[in-house]
């Protein structure tokens, strides 16, 4: 990184800088549409545009690895999960008038506050340093890996622990229901190998309504 003064100034932008700015505008526009549109699925798809725009920004800054990870994780998985959730619950075609929440002002305040905080932190951290795009690539996989595992190991590991905690928590939450069922109906035989669980519950003199939620829970478990 070099100082801005050493590079060409703000007033004679290069092509990459112009592209960066334009993509940034598109990203911002897509993000605004994401939170204002009344069509739920459209919001998710605009989110794809916004996230993709950020990936392009990374690319323009030569951070190729980060860019593709961005696409892989956010566009490929998070948005798909989001769409999955939307389709599973409620995804009407057309406008849904009740999509607005009463907290929009609070949300706006939080958003502006966090944006201000981020901008302030970033500008304060880097001030006038400038990435030299013409020189050696600074965002390559090797450079990212080196800096990640040389200077930022501790935050990286802390994040890993955080994610692990979230993972364990998710498993605990999803299994809690199942455990209670099992302790209730403790005389229930171990998972039937010879015959289906339905038939076994029928042969037992247990009310069917007791068995059903357990079965359904197991089904849910099977589906992951």
């Amino acid at each position: 990184m070099t100082l801005a003064a050493a590079s060409h100034g703000f007033l004679s932008p290069t092509g990459v800088e112009i592209a960066f700015l334009l993509v940034g505008l598109v990203t911002l526009g897509a993000a605004v549409v994401t939170v204002t549109t009344k069509q739920l699925v459209h919001a998710a798809l605009w989110l794809v545009v916004a996230l993709g725009g950020i990936a392009v920004e990374y690319l323009l800054l030569t951070a190729e690895f980060i860019a593709w990870v961005q696409v892989l994780i956010y566009v490929g998985s998070v948005v798909v999960l989001l769409l999955f959730g939307l389709m599973l619950t409620k995804a009407p075609i057309g406008r849904s008038e009740n999509a607005d929440s009463g907290n929009r002002w609070a949300a706006l305040i939080v958003a502006v506050a966090s944006a201000a905080a981020l901008v302030w932190v970033v500008t304060d951290a880097f001030r006038t340093t400038w990435i030299d795009l013409d020189g050696a690539v600074q965002g390559s996989t090797e450079a990212s890996g080196r800096s990640l595992f040389q200077y930022w190991v501790l935050p990286f590991e802390a994040l890993s622990v955080l994610l692990l905690a979230a993972l364990v928590g998710a498993i605990v939450l999803s299994r809690k229901n199942d455990d209670r069922e099992r302790s209730d109906g403790s005389e229930r035989p171990g998972s039937g190998k010879q015959s289906g669980p339905r038939e076994q519950s029928g042969s037992r003199e247990q009310p069917g309504s007791r068995e059903r939620p357990g079965d359904r829970a197991r089904l849910r478990e099977d589906q992951g």
């Binding site: 699925v41 798809l45 794809v48 190729e64 690895f65 593709w68 990870v69 696409v71 892989l72 566009v75 490929g76 998985s77 948005v79 798909v80 769409l83 999955f84 939307l86 389709m87 995804a91 075609i93 690539v137 390559s140 996989t141």
Partner: peptide, 23 residues
Amino acid sequence: DAGIFFVLAVMGVGVLGSLMAGW
């Protein structure tokens, strides 16, 4: 430089088309 990630990431995006079509 990050060919594997590029390939896998972009292939994942393709599925988005099926999702859009389905919805």
